[in-house]
């Protein structure tokens, strides 16, 4: 026993970068929704960036530690208390046996990532520690953590103190501009539908989750049903269902089919989907594939700085 769940939080689960190469079996990638924050948390505790972490959603847990280790939190900003004393995101801190870490009020973002300097005593399923919550496998017993669960770790140790470089810190304003490129059915939409889509401000709906971000306000009125061939549904696909309210698919989304896709969020902006919460504002802007690649390459350069 190493990390005990005194309070489980709304949805706390083990996630890494997910399962790659399984979509043709209907298995979505899973993994951290915000892979950037996940990797930065791992850097704080001097672990390989793709190590499994706890993904903490909207309402955070209270954790009791039974071994000494180093922790790092990145992503959404909660008020964090270690035995009643405030600790902070983006800088590592140590715990000793008996310590309690409380994720209190959520200030910004939606998902925090807690990395720990210890190794899991769990088996990977299909080459990943990620929890596939909808299908119930992987991670810790194939589910999110419950009250009184204990996550066993071994080889725990205290690591050197680390602080995230300023240029890597993320801020979540609650008002997001997501950059998009065209998707498979983009050309089937009328220009007026696309104009409306890029000119509208959308509100993140409460029924958003790891499968998809649902948006409300300014529904897109399609005059006629678009005839589509069902094809692979990738992360960031923006589907327009009959209600006209866009759905952005995410890490646990279905692998095929669905509704016509008006656009696709660029790869570099996918990690932001993990930080969207109910009532946040979302706007979309169109960009080219060339530009999307430049943005992604630049973003990767910032990540690579951490590895030096």
């Amino acid at each position: 026993m190493s990390i005990h769940f005194v309070k489980p939080g709304l949805q706390t689960s083990l996630q890494d970068l997910g399962r790659i190469g399984q979509m043709h079996k209907g298995i979505s990638r899973s993994g951290a929704m915000d892979t950037v924050a996940m990797q930065m948390a791992n850097w704080l505790v001097s672990k390989p960036l793709d190590s499994a972490v706890l993904e903490i959603t909207l309402v955070g847990p209270t954790l009791a530690f039974e071994k000494a280790m180093t922790l790092g939190v990145c992503g959404a900003e909660f008020e964090l208390f270690l035995n009643g004393n405030q600790v902070f995101n983006n800088e590592s801190f140590n715990v000793k046996p008996g310590d309690k870490l409380q994720f209190d009020k959520l200030k910004t973002g939606a998902r925090a990532y807690l990395a720990f300097s210890g190794e899991l005593k769990l088996a990977k399923v299909l080459a990943s520690y990620s929890t596939h919550i909808t299908a119930g496998f992987g991670g810790y017993q194939g589910r999110q953590f419950k009250l009184n669960d204990s996550l066993e770790l071994h080889q725990t140790q205290i690591k050197d103190a680390r602080k995230l470089p300023k240029e890597c810190e993320m801020f979540y304003s609650g008002n997001y501009l997501l950059r998009c490129v065209s998707s498979v059915e983009s050309s089937l939409f009328k220009q007026q539908n696309k104009n409306q889509f890029y000119a509208s401000s959308y509100k993140v709906s409460t029924d958003s989750n790891r499968m998809g971000i649902r948006l409300s306000d300014n529904p897109i009125q399609l005059d006629n049903k678009l005839e589509i061939l069902s094809s692979g549904l990738t992360q960031g696909s923006i589907q327009i269902p009959p209600s006209g309210e866009p759905i952005i698919s995410s890490v646990d989304g279905q692998t095929i089919g669905g509704y016509p896709r008006i656009a696709n969020v660029i790869t570099a902006d996918l990690s932001l989907l993990g930080q969207l919460k109910a009532n946040d504002k979302v706007n979309f802007v169109f960009t080219t594939n060339k530009q999307a690649n430049i943005i992604l390459t630049n973003k990767q350069k910032i990540m690579n700085k951490l590895l030096r």
């Binding site: 979509m23 043709h24 069902s230 692979g232 990738t234 095929i256 790869t267």
Partner: peptide
Amino acid sequence: ATEFIPGYQTLTVVFSPLKISIE
């Protein structure tokens, strides 16, 4: 390529854009 997703009349190939440009 990281994923090959067959459909009834489609095949979707997902790749790593950091390794090769889409063009």
